[in-house]
Design a protein around this nucleic acid. Structure first.
Lengths: 305, 305
DNA sequence: CGCAACGATGCAAGGAGTGTATTGATGTTC
DNA sequence: GAACATCAATACACTCCTTGCATCGTTGCG
């Protein structure tokens, strides 16, 4: 694993394209700078610069690294500032975890109410899959989780926040649209399917596959995305169809239409998308308590009437 | 500036909450681990753990650092894999920069066409403000920029991609909606305004302020966000109104309506949102050329008829 | 071809980091 | 309250790493 010093060295050379000038900028001499770059190249197994005594140019690998290097360094600086800020006794920090889907529904609400009613609270927002949120809640790294119901862990309490279901998103001119009524899942057999990325929305990925399997239909996945608007954009573009939470219909481009899943045997029970708010009962942060109170509403089923 | 090793040490202790177990996990002994944590605490000026010989607990500062530390380490690993991948001679990598707004319009199109017509190209996507994109184009860190027109730089060529304008987004029950015709900007005077974050959408932030100034109206900004869908969600929730590109109307929740800006003196010329594609004429990457060809379409004015 | 510029390499010195051994503090049990 | 086990912090010695100075080798330019 490389060091941040090596990344800084790399960025300086990549921007100056001259080892001597870069060294001067970093307040060091050229030879150790040269060696840091070589160490980095060895670490990454990649030549980062094509260089002679007269020219220094970035390779493809170097050009790939540069924006990421900058981003990592920026994050390191920002992180240092965040930690100092909290440490200096500013308003309590609350770390909120949310799933990709909660980011489209429950999170905006929480943000709104927090901004209105608790302007002094510093929210640290982390998009995490539900299992990682639960780990974070157990360990104290996450104060509040917006996650799907999973196996309870000792010390973690939760409460229903939202209940939803999946609906079919079709291109405007799809032959599957019919008269506007529910569509059988079997009718989706073999159609190009826009699917949730397993890294960011594994629950939905798995739920969709379970729905297909229960209907004996083949899920022909041709594209992945982690965000519902991206999936819907693919549908609008005619790349295929997808299943999204009913609550996401408000995000739809105009060239997308929605249909309910026909509630055949097995589908009705499977097609359930719950969202909970969870926290660690040993969490003593009063700002967390206050945020939880903001979310103290009964479950609601969202979707068009 | 801390080291990634220190972050790894911190994460291990934060997860184990026991220096001995964390040291074992890191294949080192406890005393140097203790010292790494102390160095990190000194570097950040913050106590990260409250600890005795019997208990180790995260402080607020520690809890703030933990998710960021994880993210930085994740990014470092991902970056290393990306660089190796490019270096191993896989299909050419193309770094595409895009503004927050282009991410809602031009980018999805590019992605679609690239996936269809150039499946072997590895796209590295970076959301950057236009000036940072231009810097990246000059330096070679960005191959293709999707940005607003800014002062040309030597060696950078550009081409119009999209032309747009701002429209008013109102809650469904707004008294400003009138009969559906254009609304004067003066009528927005003092209304709660949802505004673009300067960090991510400075151009739009500034354009909105210029429009207000030219109409002699006061921009009463009460919320910031970096993404159009978030701004529209705020409008739907009744928090106020906003100005968005006409092309974004397809993203609107059902509880939001749009009105044109009345083309009074000054407004018509100011209310112009252009998007260009730019690249460095010295860029020799053939994959870049091919992607540029995909985007070779005349300017179009997007919006409802 | 000669020359200047500049990255790479060799060497020495100082600094940084590790493990072993030990100390000091903290909870628990009796 | 005392004894004890556990465990983080500290001291010391040793090894490795990093830096700067000096020099070499290569590259473009005139």
């Amino acid at each position: 694993m490389f060091t941040l010093i090596q990344l800084e060295s790399f960025v300086a050379v990549a921007e100056e394209l001259h080892f001597g000038a870069a060294a001067e900028r970093l307040n060091m001499t050229q030879p150790p700078l040269s060696r840091q770059i070589q160490l980095l190249e060895r670490e990454l197994g990649s030549q980062l610069f094509d260089r002679t005594s007269r020219k220094v140019e970035l390779t493809d690998a170097g050009r790939t690294l540069l924006p990421s290097a900058r981003q990592i360094l920026d994050m390191a600086i920002k992180t240092e500032l965040d930690v100092r800020r909290v440490s200096l006794g500013e308003a309590g920090a609350v770390t909120v975890g949310y799933t990709a889907i909660a980011g489209q529904s429950a999170l905006p609400k929480l943000l709104r109410r927090a901004a209105d009613e608790q302007p002094g609270v510093s929210l640290i927002l982390r998009e995490l899959v539900s299992t990682d949120q639960m780990d974070g809640l157990v360990k104290g790294a996450v104060d509040i989780g917006l996650l799907r119901p999973i196996v309870a862990r000792p010390g973690i309490v939760s409460r229903p926040l939202m209940r939803d279901r999946l609906v079919i998103a079709l291109p405007a001119d799809s032959d599957l649209a019919g008269d506007g009524g529910p569509v059988a899942l079997r009718a989706l057999d073999g159609r190009p399917l826009m699917m949730y990325s397993t890294a960011e929305a594994r629950y939905f990925h798995d739920l969709v596959l379970r729905l297909f399997a229960s209907a004996g239909a083949h899920a022909n996945i041709t594209q992945y995305a982690s965000q519902v608007p991206a999936l819907l954009a693919f549908v609008e573009a005619g790349l295929g169809l997808t299943l999204v939470p009913a609550s996401a219909q408000g995000l739809a481009p105009s060239g997308v239409q929605f249909r309910e899943l026909e509630p055949s045997r097995g589908i009705k029970d499977l097609n359930r998308v719950d969202l909970e708010v969870a926290w660690n009962e040993n969490n003593t942060n009063p700002a967390v308590r206050r945020l939880l109170d903001l979310l103290d509403t009964p479950p609601e089923d969202e979707g068009p009437a």
